[in-house]
């Protein structure tokens, strides 16, 4: 959103969004996470997993959700990763039994509900339509943007089981794009945890509270499904590059640069025209939604 702002204001011609991190081989990610809720370390409450686990547990109390729902997300996304040679989990299929056997980290989350730690990076260049026209690759256009940041300290927050910022951000992005939710061909959702995918899709309105389990049955988000989600494997099964994992996958899919996992005849999906992407920060404290289409 800031990139669009500075381009529109004429302050620059190209904006590079980049992220690189030795999240796996270094300890900086774990140190960053340890600082996330340092106030509560006295009670043994650390990092993101604990905070999102509190949100997910509250969601289990308020509507029908839990490991059976999240299993469909973890196993479904892994199928996409198995088609992606860049994915950390490319050669590691996941069955329902694998998910059930995955060890608890912070209950109700198993290891399979957690995103990866990755060494690597991603980048994406944003410019104006006029400049993009002359570039080598077919451009992807930003149709809609939405941002909503509840921002409250997670402990006293009431939005942990939804609606999160995704509700308003999604509505804003759809309104700006001038499209209906049914026009979306695929989603690339920020998936720090499986529950994050569920609550984001729920708040975007793809299903009602607690209807996710039924909606996910039959491989809805998987290759060949009616709404492919996180087609690179996502943060759960491809690589953790913060919001750039979903963003760059949305862009690459619309450019047609995704190889074996390219949405279309190869995967048994519609060739995508419109992709909805998300990013969120903190413990569901900030949310951005962006809708992309072919240029």
């Amino acid at each position: 959103m800031h990139a669009v702002g500075v381009l529109e204001a004429g302050l620059c011609n190209y904006v590079l969004l980049s992220y690189g991190h030795c999240g796996r081989s270094g300890d900086s990610m774990m140190r960053m996470l340890a600082g996330l809720n340092a106030e509560d370390a006295v009670f043994g409450h650390f990092g993101a997993t604990g905070g999102y686990a509190l949100a997910a547990r509250r969601a289990m109390h308020e509507f029908r959700t839990g490991p059976e729902t999240w299993k469909r997300i973890a196993v479904g996304q892994r199928k996409w990763a198995n088609l992606n040679p860049r994915a950390m989990m490319c050669h590691r299929p996941m069955t329902d039994e694998d998910y059930d056997r995955s060890p608890w980290v912070v209950e109700p989350f198993r290891l399979a509900d957690n995103c990866l730690l990755t060494d690597g990076g991603r980048a994406c260049i944003i410019t104006t339509r006029e400049r993009a026209r002359d570039l080598r690759h077919p451009p992807v256009v930003i149709m809609g943007l939405g941002m909503c940041n509840p921002a409250a300290d997670p402990a006293p927050a009431s939005h942990l089981a939804g609606p999160t910022g995704a509700r308003r951000a999604g509505e804003m992005a759809l309104r700006m794009a001038g499209i209906a939710r049914d026009d979306i061909d695929a989603c690339e959702i920020y998936d720090c945890f499986t529950y994050t995918v569920e609550i984001t899709l729920q708040d975007y309105g793809f299903f009602g509270p607690g209807e996710g389990l039924d909606w996910l049955q039959g491989g809805t988000i998987e290759p060949g499904g009616s709404l492919p989600v996180n087609t690179s494997g996502g943060l759960l099964s491809e690589a953790y590059f913060m919001g750039l994992t979903p963003l760059t996958e949305g862009v690459m899919q619309l450019m047609g640069r995704c190889g074996e996992r390219q949405l279309g005849p190869k995967t048994g999906n519609k060739t995508p025209e419109i992709i909805m992407c998300s990013d969120n920060g903190g413990i569901l404290q900030t949310h951005s939604c962006y809708i992309l289409t072919k240029g």
Binding site: A34, G44, L54, R57, P103, W104, V105, V106, E107
Partner: peptide, 24 residues
């Protein structure tokens, strides 16, 4: 309001407490 059951000690000082419950 909610609770989470830690099965991993992110700080080794909590190892002997596992599993322990953080609650809101």
């Amino acid at each position: 309001y909610s609770y989470a059951v830690y099965h991993v000690a992110f700080d080794p000082a909590f190892q002997e407490d596992l599993p322990y419950i953080v609650a809101l």
